[in-house]
Design a protein around this nucleic acid. Structure first.
Lengths: 230, 230
DNA sequence: CCACATAGAGAGCAGTGCTCTCGAAAATAA
DNA sequence: TTATTTTCGAGAGCACTGCTCTCTATGTGG
């Protein structure tokens, strides 16, 4: 068991959680750039040096918050999707991406942390990969459902890209057609492009009906990955 | 004339340019987070306080760099596009977006500055708008060309989004069909989603053939805005 | 019980953005 | 030309940052 070897181990995970909680509050309020270890320590009433017993550096704390943000997004999307879990694939697709957008609008700084510019130098530690994959897994699950129901069309695929598409399919979803997997990866990036543009102000004075615009794009991208019209 | 009222005014713009140049070097080398006014001053051999005669704050310096980055991107894309200026619209479309991607890969930190997460609090000053619009202008120009040649198809448009599309068209490109304008805005965000994902490492271990993948997406998005196949 | 590992405090270092004052130099007015 | 005002740069200083030490209590495993 990794739980409660004693009062000390228990205290450690409690303090770790408290640090992350305070840091997350600060992150949500001021953004990653202004997240200060000293301020976190101050809020918790402890010396700033003591914080280094739990996180060896500011970047490590940020990495922990990044993983949490991925999980938070994944959980929010899964929750939003749950009530449409038995709906047709196209509907599930819409619901999941609208869930993603809603989470992003509600957690702009967390979103910026994971899908904006990488904060420190350049490392995206491999530890973030599993948390980051939750969304993609759900999307592939929806596509698999459509495939099973034989309502999944094959998106066009340039001949030159076929080997790459087959490689991606083998890695990500061997039971789906390569055309679909390649289209899905593109749609994935494009959807976060839409969300990011809205969130970071690039639609300022350009798009007014944000909800309608996003919904329309989600629909179009659904067809681009082979899903039938909603 | 705003030029050279005297040696003083001339010196001022020279020093201003030198500051921006040093700052840009530091930005390209270390990223926006590590851009330090004191380091810039040190590099120029002047007191850090003297720098405040030229830029009232670090954020103002960053804003200046943001505008420069937009201009740099716009110029790079226009230059790349120039040699295909008389090619068919679909070819011009491909060339311009590949130019955008190339610039982004060559200037990752500048790209992060303008299309990544907004750096300070949240303001995207209106002064950045004209520089930021150069790309969109070029894209609309290409679409206008296709429209004039009668090779521009009408993308599908949900009935509910028509008013919004008409509003966008009136604002951005009154001589283009609303369906095209709406599709173009979406494609614009989606293309930067693709570029950003590649640049920020989200395609790590997912997409290998980055060039082919991007090219394919650009082609697909060309058709999504009504351009004929290349 | 005791040696050991651990958590926390406090001081301190090098760095940051930014503000202030003060002297020199340039531009302008008389 | 002389006098005045504006501008520029330097230096000191403030409050803050991340991070590294050393030192002292305090739980923990043998």
């Amino acid at each position: 068991m990794s739980t409660a070897h004693g009062a000390r181990a228990r205290a450690r995970i409690e303090v770790t959680a408290a640090i992350k909680e305070a840091a997350r509050r600060q992150l949500a309020a001021e953004g990653a750039a202004k997240l200060s270890l000293r301020a976190v320590a101050r809020e918790l009433g402890m010396a700033s040096s003591a914080l280094y017993r739990y996180f060896p550096s500011r970047d490590e704390l940020l990495t922990a918050l990044i993983i949490d943000a991925y999980d938070s997004l994944g959980e929010a999307v899964e929750t939003a999707h749950a009530e449409a879990a038995h709906a047709p694939p196209a509907r599930r697709w819409s619901v999941m991406w609208e869930g993603a957008r809603t989470w992003a609008l509600g957690h702009p700084h967390e979103y910026a942390l994971i899908y904006g510019s990488p904060v420190p130098g350049y490392k995206a530690p491999d530890t973030t990969v599993p948390a980051a994959s939750r969304l993609a897994f759900l999307a592939f699950d929806i596509l698999r459902d459509a495939h099973r129901r034989s309502v999944l069309a094959l998106p066009p695929l340039a001949a030159g890209l076929r080997p790459e598409a087959e490689r991606m399919a083998a890695d990500l979803a061997p039971d789906l057609p390569p055309e679909v997997v390649a289209a899905m990866v593109a749609a994935w990036a494009e959807l976060f492009g839409l969300i990011g543009f809205e969130l970071f102000g690039h639609f300022h004075r350009v798009v007014e009906d944000r909800v309608g615009f996003f919904r329309h794009a989600v629909d179009r991208l659904a067809r681009s990955v082979g899903l039938p019209a909603a």
